[in-house]
Design a protein around this nucleic acid. Sequence first.
DNA 1: ATATAAATTTAGACAAGTCTAAAAAAAATT
DNA 2: AATTTTTTTTAGACTTGTCTAAATTTATAT
Lengths: 224, 224
Amino acid sequence: MQLMEFKLSQTEENYIKTIYSIEIHLGKSVSTNKIAEKLKTKASSVTDMIQKLSEKKLVNYKKYQGASLTSEGKSIAVKIVRRHRLWEVFLVNNLDYAWDEVHDLAEQLEHIKSKTLIDKLEAYLEYPTHDPHGDPIPDRNGNIEHHKNIMLSSAKVGENCQVIGVKDSSSSFLKFLDKTNIKLGSQLKIISIEDFDHSMIIENNGIQNSISNQISKNLFVKKY
Amino acid sequence: MQLMEFKLSQTEENYIKTIYSIEIHLGKSVSTNKIAEKLKTKASSVTDMIQKLSEKKLVNYKKYQGASLTSEGKSIAVKIVRRHRLWEVFLVNNLDYAWDEVHDLAEQLEHIKSKTLIDKLEAYLEYPTHDPHGDPIPDRNGNIEHHKNIMLSSAKVGENCQVIGVKDSSSSFLKFLDKTNIKLGSQLKIISIEDFDHSMIIENNGIQNSISNQISKNLFVKKY
DNA sequence: ATATAAATTTAGACAAGTCTAAAAAAAATT
DNA sequence: AATTTTTTTTAGACTTGTCTAAATTTATAT
Ligand SMILES: [Mn+2]
Ligand SMILES: [Mn+2]
Ligand SMILES: [Mn+2]
Ligand SMILES: [Mn+2]
């Protein structure tokens, strides 16, 4: 059966993307309330929409059992994520936005409909593999690299880590990182870990800083 | 009275832009039917919308008298035109689209809401003054150059003209120009004009071509 | 096992924008 | 001036997506 081309509304796309991101995160089907919370809408509205998406075979749904994406729904979600992240790259690399400023704009731009636009944008940006927050960009066929979930918080004293992504993309978190001079690529050495609250002293560029567990739990790193 | 910031829907913006372009063209208030035709909607829908825009003081409206933009409405329209044309420049200059492919995409992109995006895009594009069809781009204060309405059709035998814009931006017209090797900046010499149908023989880059009146009426030129 | 609490779904209403059909006004013809 | 035609407006219905309030189901706690 060939992939039908769907013309989805902006709203439908937002629901699909939201279900996708929660499902990835939790690894199981997504509750009505979770979706409502993330979309800042009401549970009753969510029920309506997932029933509609279920009729379109984009969502698996049984009453009171939560929702999960079908493979077709997942493939649409990945396309939306691809558009979102490529636009974020453009905004940061070309238009000189800071990494904490681009999310809301990308939320709009990801819904622009065109058969050719995103591939042309990707070529213009020279095929970036990650967005400004370190998240992988799916390729044109929907293949997406798996984020290895190593958080800074799991590192041990004496280890060296390189920052490769942020879990929380909120402006307040990103601005804190700017202030502390932590960016993608930063090389951090764990000097010590406080038993009581799991805060860490890290060395970054020769400078030592204390970092709360709240922070270290939101930084993806790779050890080296 | 200070300029209120309006949050208009995409639909409202499209009505305003449509009224603007017809009003500019005709120089008088715009009939319900004309708007309906251009927006491919029904007259009754148009009546509803212009009444709504009238309540918002963006449109002057008296029953059965057609609609015209207030100065506030006009200022909004110019902003939309600015966004449209800057996006068209980006699509052609940076993403390698042809000039006949960008209109529908710009129709979507012009509705992206942001206080900063368009000025940043304009800077990135290095402050272009005209879009790919030769139409002037309003500056950030809403000032827009007046197109001098000299059409190629009004040129006389022996005169030299430079193409500076197209009146019709339809894909079929633009593709015809591509085929005939006429582009913005092309220098045309009028070799002869046929009395019967006002078709012209023009010389372009050393090559002579016959051009119908339909064509010459849709090319903005300046004489030199 | 029952009672209580929490989550989910249904029912009914509303706003935005659209449409068709009918009524009213304006314009064009005779 | 009266009639016909065209344009515009109104009335009522429909769609998408939202909400509140009430009903139902599932989960939790006694
Ligand atoms: Mn984002
Ligand atoms: Mn991102
Ligand atoms: Mn255009
Ligand atoms: Mn244009």
